[in-house]
Design a protein around this nucleic acid. Structure first.
Length: 581
RNA sequence: GCGCCCGUAGCUCAGCUGGAUAGAGCAGCGGAUUUCUAAUCCGCAGGCCGCAGGUUCAAGUCCUGCCGGGCGCGCCA
């Protein structure tokens, strides 16, 4: 490895000062400024203080003493306060570039996860309405993280938790029932705090025309195993209406749940989200996992009873308050069910779990990790990524959202209006824990100006170029080789090469830091450098054979890199784009 | 009051887990193209990196304290 070669060389060069491997951690970084070479070390700056020497002088001595193979490093220079900068020989850069191209090369080397199973849970919205745009941000991040982890060798598993057992579902049933009764001309009031969204009115209206068979048919959307438990209630809306109130509510709730889950699932599909598992909270209750989790906590002596409730000693695990597990009325809290859920996740064999939560749940993190510690799973087993809110701006003002009142922008609307790719890309240009202002007007009207288009266009342009090479010059690019790429010559070409070489480490850093926005920043830069190359160099097809082939191969590798990043972020890289006049 | 997040160009945000002259997109101004798809490229302008201390050879980045904004602090989920 390149960095090992440099480290060895540097270590040998500093032995004269009595500095050995165990004394110093040699840092190598890539300077931002191209004029500072490809790699740089601050070694002399660090040793300067320790040896009471002027860093710049020391750097000069080290640079003179360091002995590196010329075919790898073509120059060693000192600069600034005492940096030692290395320039990689061009033939060696080509070797590295071919490693990026080769499927068994650099991208295989970063698969260091050892197929460890990691569970990534995201969205997990309540099944009480259509998914809104907040879920879209979570979806974009979660899915990309799953793919990133897979890219670095983990067995990552996307999961969606469905809270189908709480009070909200009852409230949902009561809300739908009230809507339906109103349509039937009966006196019925929406329950206190009930859902008022228009989607429930529409759902109620549909029920007027729906017979028993049609209701059964709509359940066919859920053929697969994950959704076995989503079944429609017996009969039709008229039957449910006549039932005693409790049962009636339950039937309406069951129907509403089924409908909403089918919407949510379809929305996820449109957004390119694939969940291996949809995990239902109701299953936890039915299989007694909630009770068993409670028993286990009790046995571990981390609970106590007070005011007729059962509490978890969360303060022993770094939380600021103790937390209720079982309410005075005997009902388990959401927290207890969530403990059972995460414990079962652990039992299902995941060595690590990552949850994406909204900012309103951040106070929930210490108790949840504390509970995992109390259960012997360990607090570090669970990692929680907090996604900050998205503020949508339309007509210059904030769009306030409330699910209860039914005022929100749905994820479907977002997809309809700006497109899934633009939405995903936009979300992924921001850090997960930054607030995000999403200007809908801008996204709608000027989606052409969106940076994602630059990337798509660069990809399409390369496809077009490769086609033209065959049509006009009868040149099939074929496989890039060290011999063909040896004819790269101009600065813009080498600047592009330099950026392409970064792909593997960009993937690793994006995955490890859970910051997928590094991918969009990177691919944007690749597209820019390709465009610069395109404009500043002579026309590729008009070059002599050797130059042309070198440039076609460089284009091919650029396309490869763009494709890999686009796949990671879930954005389509088209073969061609419609030309705009 | 306590906790978490944020404060960088007119706007939206990066700044690679401490490096060299702080960047990009959009908006503004000025150029290039009868193009291998200009959805592009080149140039100009635009900054007490919220404020004040501290650590360090080196701070937008780490620590402390303020200021300003968002969110949270239920036997809700």
């Amino acid at each position: 490895m390149l960095e090992d070669i440099l480290r060895q060389g540097l270590l040998a060069a500093v032995e004269q000062y009595g500095v050995y491997e165990e004394d110093v951690d040699i840092e190598l970084e890539q300077p931002r400024d191209r004029s500072h070479g490809h790699l740089s070390t601050n070694l002399a700056l660090i040793l300067g203080g320790r040896l009471k020497r002027k860093p710049r002088e020391l750097a000069g001595e080290i640079a003179a003493a360091v002995d590196l193979p010329k075919e790898v490093i073509e120059s060693v220079e000192i600069a600034g306060p005492g940096f030692i900068n290395f320039r990689i020989a061009r033939p060696y850069q080509i070797d590295l570039l071919l490693e990026v191209w080769n499927p068994d090369g650099a991208l295989a080397d970063i698969r260091t996860g050892g197929d460890k199973r990691i569970n990534v849970e995201f969205i997990s919205a309540n099944p009480t309405g259509p998914l809104n745009v907040v879920s879209a941000r979570a979806g974009a991040f979660g899915m990309t993280l799953v793919r990133l982890l897979t890219a670095i060798g983990y067995d990552a598993h996307a999961e969606y938790y469905v809270n189908d057992a709480g009070r909200q579902v009852g409230l949902l049933g009561r809300s739908l029932r009230a809507q339906y009764l109103q349509l039937m001309g009966e006196q019925a009031e929406l329950p206190e705090g009930g859902y008022q969204g228009r989607y429930l009115e529409i759902m109620a209206a549909e029920l007027l025309d729906r017979d028993t068979e049609a209701i059964k048919d709509s359940a066919k959307a859920f053929d697969d195993e994950s959704f076995q438990r989503v079944q429609p209630p017996e009969g039709n809306a008229e039957d449910w209406r006549r039932l005693p109130e409790e049962e009636s509510v339950r039937s309406f709730a069951k129907y509403a749940l089924m409908k909403i889950l089918s919407w949510q699932r379809e929305t996820c599909r449109r957004f390119g989200l694939r969940f291996e598992t949809w995990y239902f909270e109701s299953e936890l209750h039915e299989t007694k996992r909630v009770e068993r989790a409670l028993e286990k906590l009790k046995k571990s002596e981390v609970t106590f009873e007070a005011d007729d409730a059962v509490w978890f000693r969360a303060t022993d695990y770094g939380d600021e308050k103790d937390r209720v597990l079982v309410r005075a009325d005997g009902m388990p809290t959401y927290f207890l069910a969530d403990i059972a859920y995460h414990f079962h996740k652990f039992q299902r064999g995941f060595e690590y779990a990552i949850d994406f939560w909204g900012p309103d749940h951040h106070g929930y993190i210490p108790r949840m990790r504390g509970a995992m510690e109390a259960l012997g799973v360990g607090r570090d087993w669970l990692e929680v990524q907090v996604l900050q809110h998205v503020t949508f701006i339309e007509g210059g003002r904030n769009v306030q959202m409330s699910k209860r009142r039914g005022q929100f922008i749905t994820m479907d609307e977002l997809i309809d209006e700006v497109g899934a790719d633009v939405a995903k890309y936009t979300f992924l240009t921001r850090k997960p824990n930054s607030h995000l202002d999403f200007d809908l007007d801008l996204a709608k009207e000027q989606s052409d100006e969106n940076p994602v288009m630059k990337v798509k266009y660069a990809h399409a342009r390369i496809c077009s170029l490769l086609g033209k090479a065959v049509e006009q010059k009868s040149v099939e690019a074929g496989e890039p080789t060290a011999a063909s790429l040896a004819h790269l010559a101009d600065e813009p070409e080498w600047n592009l090469v330099r950026e392409l070489l970064r792909l593997p480490q960009v993937i690793v850093s994006a995955a490890r830091s859970r910051e997928p926005h590094r991918l969009t920043a990177y691919v944007d830069e690749v597209a820019s450098l390709y465009n610069r190359f395109w404009n500043q160099c002579e026309k590729i097809l008009e070059q002599d054979d050797e130059r042309r082939l070198a440039q076609l191969h460089l284009s091919l590798i650029t396309r490869h890199v763009i494709r890999i990043v686009c796949e990671l972020i879930g954005v389509d890289a088209p073969e061609s784009m419609e030309k705009r006049d």
